[in-house]
C-alpha cells in the first residue's frame, strides 16, 4: 500500500491498517445505546450548577463512582446551558471510557462522549477548542478496536485535533498537541493516509516544550523519536526515564499501570534499557 504496493499490496494494506494499532472490525458507526449506570441511588446530592466546578477536579485518579454519578446527573436532570455546551460531559465520558476494560462498554461511553461534544458544538459552545479535543479523544477511544470506523474517521479526528491544538493547546497539559502527534505517528502514512513522521515529531516536541510536566507528552515524543529519527536512542531514553518518574509520582489512578506498560513496550521496541 503506502510503502510497498509493488511488493505486497495485501501485506502492505494490512500493515497500513495496523499502524493504527487496530484489529480489523466490521463496525462502521458509533454505537448509540448507553451504558447502564448502576448503583446511582447512592450518588451525592448536588445541583448541576455545581458540576462544572466539581468536574474541574476530575482526573484519572477520580473515583469511578463519582464520574458515573456525574454522568447520571447529566443524563437525567435538566442541564444548564453552560454545562450542556461545555466540554465537561464529554470529558467525563472520556475519563470513564479510558478506564473501562470491557470493550463494548468503553465504546459506548466514548460514543456518548462524542455525542455530548457534537451537541455542544452544534450549539456554538464558547469552549469549542476544548470540546473538539474531547470529541477527538472519545472518537479515538471508540474507534480504537474498529478499523473501518477508525479509517472512516481519520480526517475528522485530524480536523478536531487541529482545531483543539489551535484553540485549546493547554487542555490536559498539551493533550491536543500530543494526540495530534500520536495520530500522525500511527496513521497510515503518505500517500494513502495522513501519517507523517515529521509532523508527529513537530507536535510531540511542541507538547513537551509547553508541558514537560505531563508524562504522556514525554512518552509520545520518545516513541516518535524512535520511530522517525535515526540515532535518537539517548534522547528517547532520557524522555522515558523522566516519563516513568512522572507516572509513578503523579495522580494518575488506574491509568498509571497502563501508561507504565506502554512505556515498557516502547522501550522494548526501541531496544532501550531503563
Amino acid at each position: 500500500m503506502e510503502d510497498h504496493p509493488l511488493r505486497a499490496p495485501l501485506g502492505a494494506a494490512l500493515a497500513g491498517l495496523l499502524l493504527l494499532g487496530l484489529g480489523p472490525g466490521c463496525i462502521w458507526n458509533l454505537p448509540k445505546d448507553l451504558v447502564v449506570l448502576s448503583g446511582m441511588d447512592a450518588c451525592p446530592e448536588y445541583d448541576l450548577d455545581e458540576l462544572p466546578a466539581r468536574a474541574e477536579a476530575f482526573d484519572h485518579a477520580t473515583e469511578s463512582v463519582e464520574l458515573r454519578c456525574a454522568l447520571h446527573k447529566l443524563r437525567t436532570a435538566a442541564i444548564p446551558a453552560e454545562v450542556h455546551w461545555s466540554g465537561t460531559p464529554a470529558r467525563i465520558c472520556y475519563l470513564l471510557a479510558d478506564r473501562t476494560r470491557n470493550g463494548d462498554d468503553r465504546d459506548r461511553l466514548a460514543a456518548e462522549g462524542v455525542r455530548w461534544a457534537e451537541i455542544a458544538l452544534d450549539h456554538g459552545s464558547p469552549e469549542a477548542g476544548r470540546v473538539h479535543y474531547y470529541l477527538a479523544i472519545n472518537l479515538g477511544l471508540a474507534a480504537r478496536t474498529h478499523a473501518a470506523l477508525a479509517v472512516k474517521n481519520l480526517g475528522r479526528l485530524e480536523k478536531a485535533l487541529l482545531d483543539a491544538a489551535r484553540e485549546a493547546p493547554a487542555e490536559e497539559q498539551g493533550g491536543p498537541l500530543r494526540m495530534l502527534g500520536a495520530l500522525y505517528l500511527l496513521a497510515p502514512p503518505w500517500p494513502d493516509g495522513i501519517g507523517d513522521g515529521d509532523k508527529a515529531l513537530e507536535y510531540t516536541r511542541k507538547a513537551v516544550e509547553l508541558h514537560p510536566e505531563h508524562p504522556l507528552n514525554l512518552l509520545f515524543l520518545a516513541q516518535a523519536l524512535l520511530e522517525v529519527e535515526e540515532d535518537a536512542c539517548e534522547e528517547a531514553r532520557a524522555l522515558l526515564l523522566r516519563a516513568r518518574a512522572l507516572i509513578e509520582q503523579g495522580p494518575y489512578g488506574d491509568a498509571r499501570e497502563r501508561w507504565l506498560k506502554e512505556l515498557r513496550a516502547i522501550a522494548r521496541d526501541g531496544d532501550i534499557e531503563l
Binding site: M1, A13, L14, P24, A147
Partner: peptide, 8 residues
C-alpha cells in the same frame, strides 16, 4: 484510502 486487502 488504500488500507486494503487484509482489512477487507
Amino acid at each position: 484510502m488504500r488500507i486494503a486487502g487484509a482489512a477487507l
